[in-house]
C-alpha cells in the first residue's frame, strides 16, 4: 500500500516535471512568413535573442492558410506550450476562439488591443507617433519641399503609418508636399522590391528627396533606389540604417522584438494580462540613430525631434490616428 503510494507519488512528480519541462514558449507568425525583413522577422529576432540569452528553446510556426490559424494555435496550446505569442491583428479572431478554451495557457497577441480575454496580453504599437518623428526629420532634411511615402499593401495599418508621417512633416513645414503611394493591394506587395524601386524613381521625378518606406521586403528596393538616385530614405520596423550608410536618414523602429522578448522572459509566472501600448514613452517605437546616419541628423534636428517626442509623451502634441475615423487630417488617400 505504502509502496504503491510512493510509486504513484513518484510518478506524479515525474509527470509534473515532464510538463514543466514541456512548458516552452511558442511563437506563431502571421502570413508573410518568418523572414519578411520586417514585422515577423522582428518577432523572430526577439525570440532568437531570448533563446540565446537564456539557453531556452521555443517552438515557432508559420501560418500559410486562413484555415490553419485556429488549427495551429489550438495545437500549440494542446501540446502544452506556454506562453504562446501570436502575431498580427489578423489573428485576433484566432485567439478569441482558442484562448478561452485553454484558460491555463497564457496568450499574447501583437498589434491587437480591443479584445477582452482573461488569459490574454495584448500588445499594440503607436506607429503613428514613431512615424510622426521620422516625418519631422524628413521635412527638416528635405530641400525640395517634397517628401515621399511608399507603403506595402494598402491596408489601414499602413495608412496609419503614412498619416503619422504626413502630420510630422507638416508640423515642421505646413507647405510641404507629401507624395504617398502604395505598392499593391495583395500580400505580394510586401515583397516586391522591384516595384518599390520604380515607385521611388517616380516620386523622385515628382521632386521628393526623402522617401519613407513602410513596406516590408519591398522597402529594400525603395532604400536601394533612393541611394542610387542620391536622395535620402527612411527604413521601418528594424534599424535599416546600415543598409546604405549615409543614405538612410533614419529608421522608424517598431520594437516587436522587445515585445516578444519580454513575454518570453516573463514566462508564465510573470505574465500580465491586459493591454500594453508600446509607444514613445516605453521605447516601443522610436527613430534609429547610429554611426551610419550620424552625419545626416544635425543637432538642431535631433533637438527638435526629441522635444516633439517629449511633447507627445506629455500630451502637448496629439498625433491623430488614422483608425479614429478611417481618415487622415494631413493626407488624402
Amino acid at each position: 500500500m505504502t509502496l504503491m503510494q510512493k510509486m504513484l507519488g513518484g510518478a506524479t512528480v515525474l509527470a509534473m516535471t515532464a510538463t514543466a519541462a514541456l512548458a516552452e514558449p511558442a511563437l506563431m507568425y502571421d502570413m508573410g512568413g518568418k523572414f519578411d525583413k520586417s514585422f515577423n522577422e522582428a518577432a523572430y529576432n526577439g525570440a532568437k535573442r531570448w533563446a540565446e540569452e537564456t539557453g531556452g528553446s521555443y517552438r515557432e510556426i508559420e501560418v500559410t492558410a486562413e484555415a490553419q490559424r485556429v488549427q495551429f494555435a489550438t495545437r500549440l496550446a494542446e501540446a502544452g506550450f506556454n506562453p504562446i505569442v501570436v502575431l498580427g491583428f489578423a489573428n485576433a479572431a484566432t485567439v478569441e476562439e482558442v484562448a478561452p478554451k485553454y484558460p491555463d495557457t497564457k496568450f499574447a497577441i501583437i498589434d491587437v488591443n480591443w479584445l477582452d480575454i482573461e488569459n490574454l496580453r495584448q500588445i499594440s504599437f503607436a506607429e503613428h507617433e514613431g512615424s510622426y518623428l521620422v516625418g519631422m526629420l524628413a521635412a527638416m532634411a528635405s530641400d525640395s519641399g517634397t517628401v515621399g511615402f511608399i507603403g506595402g499593401m494598402d491596408i489601414p495599418l499602413i495608412r496609419h503609418f503614412a498619416c503619422g508621417y504626413a502630420q510630422g512633416a507638416k508640423a515642421v513645414n505646413p507647405d510641404i508636399k507629401v507624395v504617398a503611394n502604395m505598392t499593391g493591394t495583395t500580400p505580394a506587395a510586401w515583397n516586391d522590391p522591384v516595384k518599390g524601386g520604380e515607385l521611388t524613381r517616380a516620386q523622385v521625378s515628382q521632386g521628393a528627396d526623402v522617401v519613407y518606406a513602410a513596406a516590408g521586403g519591398t522597402g529594400v528596393g525603395v532604400l536601394q533606389a533612393a541611394a542610387d538616385a542620391n536622395i535620402l530614405s527612411i527604413g521601418v520596423d528594424s534599424n535599416q540604417n546600415h543598409l546604405h550608410p549615409g543614405k538612410v536618414l533614419t529608421s522608424m523602429l517598431k520594437r516587436v522584438d522587445n515585445a516578444v522578448f519580454d513575454v518570453f522572459s516573463k514566462g508564465t509566472e510573470g505574465f500580465e494580462a491586459g493591454i500594453t501600448v508600446m509607444g514613445l514613452e516605453n521605447d516601443g517605437v522610436g527613430y534609429a540613430l547610429d554611426e551610419n546616419n550620424a552625419p545626416l541628423v544635425s543637432d538642431d534636428m535631433k533637438m527638435a525631434v526629441d522635444k516633439a517626442r517629449e511633447d507627445i509623451i506629455a500630451g502637448n502634441i496629439s498625433v491623430a490616428s488614422y483608425y479614429e475615423n478611417d481618415s487622415c487630417p494631413a493626407l488624402e488617400f
Partner: peptide, 16 residues
C-alpha cells in the same frame, strides 16, 4: 481590397 477596406469593414475595426 477596395471593398473590404472601404465598404464592408465594420466601423472601428482595423482588420480588413
Amino acid at each position: 481590397v477596395y471593398l473590404l477596406v472601404e465598404v464592408l469593414k465594420p466601423e472601428g475595426s482595423m482588420d480588413p
